[in-house]
Structures are given as structure tokens and as C-alpha cells.
Amino acid sequence: MKLLVCISKTPETTAKIAFTDGDTQFDSNGVQYILNPYDEWYALVRAIELKEANGGTVTVVNVGPASNDVIIRKALAIGADEATRINGEPQSAYYTAQQIANFAKDGGFDIIFTGKETIDYNGSEVGGMVAELMDLPYISYATALDVDGDTSTVTRDIEGGNEVAKVTGPFVVSAAKGMAEQRIPNMRGIMMAKRKPLNVIEAVEVNATAEIIKYRMPEQKSSVKMIDPENMDELVRLLQEEAKVL
């Protein structure tokens, strides 16, 4: 099996969020970056499990600058076989998806994995775009994935439940919690990762169809009103009359 996992980087979950240049740029000063949890914990691990069971290769691809090599090495340490970094600034989902589709089109991949979303911009867009660009089926928010020959059975979350789909042939899947269990890279993996191939290719030219022009912070909550635990009638009154939510 040839498996491709799209990996992205995202600020570490407790990173302080601030902006510069008149609130037009994210301030990356002092921010630690991590592999996007959905890509690392679920997509990548499930791809490795499938390879372990069926043979084949797991390739990871990232669109980004050279500083991303750290997180790419981590994916190799967890167990991917090889990596490609497409050298460019991933300004938008559209740009990123074009790069990935262009890279994957002649790769003969059986399954292309993405995470359900990146936890910074919460886009949830790249997977569907790659699928459309390659004219492949797309199963989003998959919580389980099993492969038998050229058919795959995928469980995906839908509002208030889930559904089980059967897909024939290659497809794109976005991974959500449940698809696999997080793996921590061990010493041997980290050593081996240093010797695995990390290819760098140049990005193709793509127009930005959407871009961020301004950031702002949400309105601050006024400070908390503490309620006497003996007086729940008072809380209910406030919820009705002051907050107007009941």
C-alpha cells in the first residue's frame, strides 16, 4: 500500500496568542510549534498501522519553510518512511491543497490522509480541496478506517451520531479522534529518522484566493459573579433575567 499523510504545524496548545504589524500578522515570537495533533495522533498513526499490517510505505508531506523540518523529523521518528517538504508559505488552504495535489497526482497513493482540521485556524478545508483537485472521494471526520484489498470501510462522525461508508479505490480521508492511539517516538525511531529521506521540492505558483487582513481579540468577559451555593433560585433568576438564556 502507498499511503500519504499530510502534516501541518501549529502553535503548541498553550501558546500565547498575540499579533504584530498593526494586528495584521500572527506574532510567532517565542511560540513553540508542534505537529498538528489530528495529523500526528490519528492520521499518521493509522497509516503506520495499516502499513505494518499490509506492507507498503508511508510518505508524509508538508507545505512550509525549512523551519518545519523539525516537525517532519518527528513524523519520521514516529514511523513514516519518507518525507517531502514543499518549500513555500502555506498562506491559505487553497494554496496548500494545490501544492499537495500537484505532488500526489503521479504518486499512485491508495489513501491520502489529512487531519480533521488544524487547531490554529480550524479550517477543515485542505482535505476536501485535495480530493476535488484529484477527483477522488473524500470522507471527512473519520473515527475508524479499515482496509481490505481495494475496499475501505470508514466510520465518520455526523451530527448526533455516525455513519459507516464503503469506499472502492483511492480516496482522501480526514482523521478525527478514535482512528488510532497516539504513539510516542522512541529512541530508536528518533535515531532512524535522521537517516530517512526528507526531500524538498519547490512550490508551484498559486494565486491567493483568500487571505487574513486583520486580527482582533474577543471581547473580555466581565468578571465572574459568585453565587451562594445555598441559593440556586438566585442563579436561575439571573440566568432568566440578566443573562436571558433560559
Binding site: 487553497y94 479550517g123 476536501g128 480541496m129 476535488e132 483568500a210
Partner: peptide, 20 residues
């Protein structure tokens, strides 16, 4: 879940900018 699986596809088909 439906909208999220359609947004990117439609954006590509229409050559449109998208925001989710």
C-alpha cells in the same frame, strides 16, 4: 459535518475563495 466536507470541493469547482 456535511458543510465541512463540501466547502473545499465547491471552492475548487468554482475557483472561489473560501472561509470556513
Amino acid at each position: 459535518s456535511t458543510g465541512k466536507s463540501l466547502l473545499g470541493r465547491i471552492a475548487i469547482r468554482l475557483n472561489a475563495g473560501s472561509v470556513s
